[in-house]
């Protein structure tokens, strides 16, 4: 399939088109999963193949499709906002009420026993319902806190492994224009594809983001995350992951629209070569 190291572009393009038989596709996918360079070329091949959609005669879907979609979305959003737990309790209460025996209103004995009992039950049910809602909310908060702790622990472990590894390279970033006093530092572990970086940069307008780029030895720059709001920050350092085994030639920071771009489009503010 390949030249012993990397997959031939022709094979990647056939794979991107979906034209490889299953056994060849499986073998190729297995290689790509562990090869940053081939993964990047495959992403580009997929992008080129996706352009074939522009060869098709354009047609508009019926207006009802969007209306149904938005209704579906609205229903989903309302369901998310509602807490369904009390609704289930209410339904059970309704069913229990239906199963209760019917009482002859003329019997005073039943009136004296069952009416107060029914009122008492209603009060207890209401209190339990309120308590269950409170417990569900607390549980959700605890769950979210636990997930945050697990995420933080994973981030710490990544940080330590990168800083301690002999394969990690350090790249100093220097300002490329105004203000020239900006600077940055990148720690990159090519084997794992983990990038750590810190930078001193002035604040940007609300519609802009700083974006970090890894410039590989071959191919187009790869986004290594956003700095500041919307980026993956740990303390004063940011972390990102790129495909493993990507050989880095340089790192750069550019100014992009908020949320970032697939490729650099804006002014370069920091640059460092490996």
């Amino acid at each position: 399939m390949g030249n012993g190291e990397h997959i031939r572009l022709e094979e990647l393009e056939l794979f991107a088109l979906g034209a490889l038989p299953e056994d060849e596709a499986t073998a190729l996918q297995s290689h790509v999963s562990g090869c940053g360079e081939c993964a990047m070329k495959l992403a580009q091949a997929r992008g080129n193949a996706a352009m074939l959609a522009f060869a098709v005669k354009q047609d508009k879907p019926a207006g009802t499709v969007k209306a149904e979609l938005m209704a579906r979305i609205r229903a989903n959003r309302e369901a998310e906002e509602r807490n369904t737990w009390p609704s289930k309790i209410q339904i059970v209460e309704g069913e229990e009420a239906k199963r209760k025996p019917k009482v002859d209103a003329k019997s005073s004995w039943w009136n004296w026993v069952l009416v107060p009992a029914a009122v008492g039950l209603a009060v207890v049910s209401f209190a339990l319902s309120w308590q269950n809602r409170r417990i569900a909310t607390e549980l959700q908060k605890e769950r979210q806190a636990a997930e945050t702790l697990i995420h933080d622990r994973e981030q710490i472990e990544k940080l330590v492994s990168v800083l301690a590894s002999p394969d990690t390279v350090t790249v100093k970033l220097a300002g490329t224009g105004d203000p020239a006093s900006t600077s940055g530092l990148v720690k990159y572990n090519g084997k794992t594809g983990i990038v750590l970086y810190a930078a001193e940069l002035p604040a940007l307008p609300a519609d802009k983001s700083y974006q970090m780029w890894l410039v590989p030895a071959n191919g187009a720059p790869i986004s290594a995350g956003l700095l500041g709001p919307g980026g993956h920050a740990w303390g004063s350092m940011w972390t990102a992951e790129v495909p493993a085994n990507t050989q880095a030639k340089a790192f750069a920071v550019t100014i992009e629209p908020v949320g970032g771009m697939p490729q650099p489009t804006g002014q370069k503010v920091l640059l460092g070569t490996t």
Binding site: G18, A43, Q44, R46, G47, N48, M51, A220, P262, Q263
Partner: peptide
């Protein structure tokens, strides 16, 4: 057959 749709980089 499942086709992987992740990682599509558009040049345009």
């Amino acid at each position: 057959e499942e086709l992987d749709e992740n990682g599509v980089s558009l040049s345009m």
